[in-house]
Design a protein around this nucleic acid. Structure first.
Length: 493
RNA sequence: GACAAGGUGGCUGAAUGGUCAAGGCAAUGGAUUGCAAAUCCAUCAUUUAUGAGUUCGAAUCUCAUCCUUGUCUCCA
């Protein structure tokens, strides 16, 4: 199914600041690279939002029939705490702190990362390369940049020469910065600094004798600079120019700016056609920060074991909540917002559960084909999931009306509605139906049927004490009875 | 201080020049119900941080001010 031939997708390109029609470099194929986590601590909820956004994008491309190669790296070396001379590798620092091998740190938090993303129903990327697995490729790129004259060696380290590069190229075009301004706002170099210019960044850092993470190179033992791994791995798996590069807004500068510089310096041309940036997640209107306590881990939301929220929320509800905002907007997570999302989520799932049993007729009061295209239009407009969800609720309303017998639907439209709804909710948005009623054990259904029958008998006899007792006790257990025209049904919250 | 993304109803969150500013949640009235819940119908921002400007027309463009988030710088 090559749906992409019928749909015009527009994406917001951070490089130009405009929405552009998406045209892949190779027809029918999409190459997408997203900067993955540095695995030195448990994955942050904000990171989850970014990866969830790109998971949705990945899913929509697939849904449209593109063959997608989605590469998301694991940074397991080289991410310095800061760019100063005493900059320490984040992973090496954590290893020292916990007195374990750096690779134990990497292993522990990579597993946590995968577990968390799996809970939120993220699809695994096509390739998930690690920085340490691509040291050779990174060294090769450094050699090329050195050959082209855009880098210099100093005392066993190699630095990218930003000023030289800016003479032939434009450094700062992604983040809207001017090199002159940056230089004007910078202090003088200290005497012991190896860099020619404070804006220069490390391609290769010399490893001090006590440094554990080290690899041999033409410039001596050392380790790669943080920005380099993404250039090496994206080029290796997606080519010198690929379609989409994604990541969090916070990576725009310097990380992505440096990626552009490295690629242009080594290959002579721009590496990426469309730059997509996902916006940040705040908590109760403020940035998340471990030091102020305004912070929550994914596992704490799911378990409810935290001081910030009133209750636990399922991963599907959290995902639905995130999808209700556009990926380029700042999203604020709060208890009120999650509660509202949970109710909306339940209503959506309820309607989808009722879809199958709808009675069909000879005509439809609901323009399913028009509605379906509206859903595509929403997604085609830079993956506008909030608008898509608004349309989904339009379908919910019609499903409920049909169920009540106030509207009609033909068999063909019902099938179309069901297929489309499932495609957008499950396949594109990646929202699972986690209501317990779905995995219906026959025993539970049998017991419920019995209770409903007993209650209805009591109601018929006007024994409301008994009928209300059954209803209230079930409510206390989290089972809600629903008296409809067609009889009584139940749902489990 | 610089750059970037923003500031929309009680909460959340769409809409970037064109009649009434989506949707979810909450709220109010009605239908339904033994009473509720669920469901349906109706109501719910003369107004988009503030001030000024451009325009026949602005939430949307321009300028100023205030605020939030991110990055850099400074500081440490």
């Amino acid at each position: 199914m090559q749906l992409y031939k019928d749909q015009t997708l527009r994406v917001h390109n951070s490089l130009t600041g405009k929405k552009e029609v998406f045209q892949p470099i190779n027809e029918g194929h999409v190459g997408m690279y997203v900067c993955g986590p540095t695995v030195y601590s448990n994955v942050h909820l904000g990171n989850c939002r970014t990866f969830m956004s790109f998971d949705m994008i990945f899913r929509y491309f697939k849904h449209l029939g593109y063959k997608v190669r989605y590469v998301r790296n694991i940074t397991d070396a080289g991410h310095l705490e800061n760019d100063a001379d005493d900059g320490e590798d984040k992973i090496a620092k954590k290893a020292k702190l916990e007195q374990i091998e750096p690779m134990e740190v990497v292993q522990r938090y990579t597993v946590d990362f995968h577990n968390t993303l799996q809970q939120f129903n993220l699809l695994p990327p096509s390739i998930e390369p690690t920085a340490t697995g691509h040291i050779i490729e990174q060294i090769e790129i450094i050699k090329e940049i050195l050959e082209k004259g855009y880098a210099y060696e100093a005392n066993g380290s190699v630095y990218f020469d930003v000023i030289k590069f800016n003479k032939d190229h434009e450094y700062g075009k992604l983040s809207g910065r001017k090199l002159e301004d940056m230089i004007a706002n910078t202090r003088e170099l200290t005497a012991q600094d190896e860099k020619r210019n404070p804006q220069d960044f490390a391609l290769w850092k010399k490893a001090e004798p006590q440094h554990i993470m080290r690899w041999p190179s033409p410039w001596g033992d050392g380790f790669p600079g943080w920005h380099l791994e993404c250039t090496a791995m994206s080029t290796k798996y997606l080519g010198e120019t690929f379609d989409i590069h994604g990541g969090g807004m916070d990576l725009k500068f310097p990380h992505h700016e440096c990626e552009i510089a490295q690629a242009e310096a080594s290959t002579g041309h721009a590496p990426v056609k469309y730059w997509l940036h996902a916006n940040m997640l705040t908590l109760n209107g403020k940035k998340m920060s471990k030091s102020t306590g305004n912070n929550i881990y994914p596992s704490e939301i799911i378990s409810g074991d935290n001081d910030i929220l009133s209750k636990a929320y399922s991963p599907a509800v959290v995902r639905f909540f995130m999808m209700q905002a556009h990926y380029t907007s700042i999203l604020d997570l709060s208890d009120d917002a999650l509660q509202a999302s949970e109710k909306g989520y339940n209503r959506l799932m309820e309607a989808m559960g009722n879809l199958d049993s709808l009675k069909t007729g000879s005509k439809s009061d609901f323009d399913v084909a028009g509605w379906k295209q509206k859903c595509y239009d929403a997604m085609n407009d830079d993956f506008n999931t909030p608008i898509l969800i608004a349309h989904l609720f339009d379908a919910v309303k019609h499903i409920n009306l049909i169920k009540e017998g106030k509207e009609n639907v033909t068999e063909a439209d019902k099938t179309e509605l069901e297929t489309t709804l499932k495609a957008f909710v499950y396949e594109v948005l990646g929202i699972e139906n986690q209501s317990l009623a779905k995995d219906d054990s026959n025993a539970l259904n049998g017991v419920m049927e019995l209770l409903i029958q007993l209650r209805n008998e009591a109601r018929a006899n006007k024994d409301f004490a008994t009928s209300d007792k059954i209803r209230d006790e079930l409510t206390a257990l989290g089972i809600q009875l629903k008296d409809g025209k067609e009889g009584t049904t139940f749902s489990i919250n």
